Simulated assay, not measured.
Amino acid sequence: MANITDIAKELGIAPSTVSRALKKPDLVSLDTRHKVLQMAEKLGYLQKLRDDATAATATNLIGVIVADLTNSFSNQIVKAVHDTLENSGYSAIVGCNYEQSSIENRLLKQWASLNLKGLIIMPTAKFSKTINSVDANYPIVLVDRNSEDLSFDSVIEDNRYGASQAIEHLRELGHERIVFVTGARRVYTFNERCLGVESSNSKNTVNVQIEEVDAESYDELFIGAFEKTNILMMKNKTLRPTAIVGANNAITAGILYALNLKDFKIPNDVSVVSYGDSDWCRFYPTPITSMCQPVDEMGREAASILLEKIKGKKGDPEKICLKSMLLRRASSSELQV
């Protein structure tokens, strides 16, 4: 490979002049600089500099964007992704979109200079617009959310199945006044779970009531669920719910807080089921019946698919859909007459 001495020899000038022409062009004449650049290009020296610069900035960095790290679900996804990537020599940079496309867009633009090898993301509802506005020339895997507008690999949970299983569990216990408290239906997972409840309703004569909290963040969901539960439990005993399902951990926490403040006994006064299992669900004074999501598996699968894509695997996008499992604990019991 040519070097500065080779260029100087071809032009019949000193190597120091070549060095100045390349590094401090204002110290040589325009004619000399032009000749040096032409010869450097001809001998492949400039291409070598470009290749070295590319190698110096190359990384084994994967972008990971989740909805909200205050939610244990997102934390578990990140850990599973991180562990899988680390075993293959990759590192992760993590960001939160907080269900806002503007933040999602800003993160991707800020990361553009990092030479990401790939991206794993819990996309917002407007991700199709976001991704079209940035130069993302790397493989992308969606996790926990799907996008019908885009053909990306995805690893999701069958939210409709999970919600219907939670409802059917309570129906089997004899409950008829069941309320499903959900977050904003513009969020993919909440909407899918509501569709699961509606599917269950279509097969039964007694409908489950869906109460929507128009919120997305953990704190807002907690407060909204707390307020909804207070209103629901103020009703006459013959009208208020005998069972409540929280559509995620934040909502369930708000439900439990409201019930405790009003001194309602679980499950004697009202049964409670959480969509999502956290450590506190197991250790709560009355352990909470939960839909246990395949969180670790989702994270591992998403990372594994991305690694295969980075290696050059071709073919149609993979669409993996996993199922949650009901963990029955003390918070749900047969209807107390």
Rank of each mutant, 00 (worst) to 15 (best):
W280G: 02
W280Q: 06
V78Y: 05
I156M: 08
E99R: 11
K262I: 00
F222A: 00
A247R: 02
M39W: 07
D135Q: 10
S200F: 04
I65Q: 06
H175K: 11
A225G: 12
E227M: 04
V208C: 07
K79C: 00
Y90P: 08
H82C: 00
F73S: 02
D51N: 12
N137E: 00
K235M: 06
T286K: 11
C281A: 15
D219K: 14
N146Y: 07
S332E: 10
S72I: 09
E212I: 14
Y284G: 07
T189D: 02
K203F: 04
K228W: 01
R177C: 08
E216G: 00
T57S: 15
T54Q: 11
D296T: 13
R106Q: 14
G118R: 10
W111G: 08
S271D: 10
K203M: 07
V272I: 14
V66R: 09
A125E: 12
A21Y: 13
Y218C: 05
T205V: 02
A330R: 15
A2V: 07
T242H: 05
R33C: 06
I288A: 09
R50M: 05
I305N: 04
R240D: 05
V213N: 04
G299C: 09
A56M: 13
N159E: 05
L326Q: 13
A302I: 03
S278I: 15
L307S: 02
S217E: 09
Q100V: 05
T252W: 12
Q293M: 12
A14D: 15
S332F: 13
E172N: 15
A55N: 14
L256Y: 00
A215M: 05
L49W: 03
L150G: 06
R328V: 14
D31F: 01
S324N: 12
T59M: 07
N204M: 09
E227Y: 02
N248H: 08
P139Q: 01
N204Y: 14
D83L: 09
R193K: 13
V272P: 01
D296V: 08
R145C: 07
A258G: 08
I255A: 03
V187Q: 06
A55Q: 15
V36Q: 07
A80S: 15
L107G: 10
A8T: 09
K23M: 10
S101R: 08
A184N: 10
S202P: 00
L256N: 01
D83C: 02
N249W: 03
N3Y: 03
T229F: 08
K314N: 12
Q209G: 00
V295G: 02
M233I: 14
A53E: 10
S72A: 14
K9D: 05
D296R: 13
M233L: 12
G89E: 11
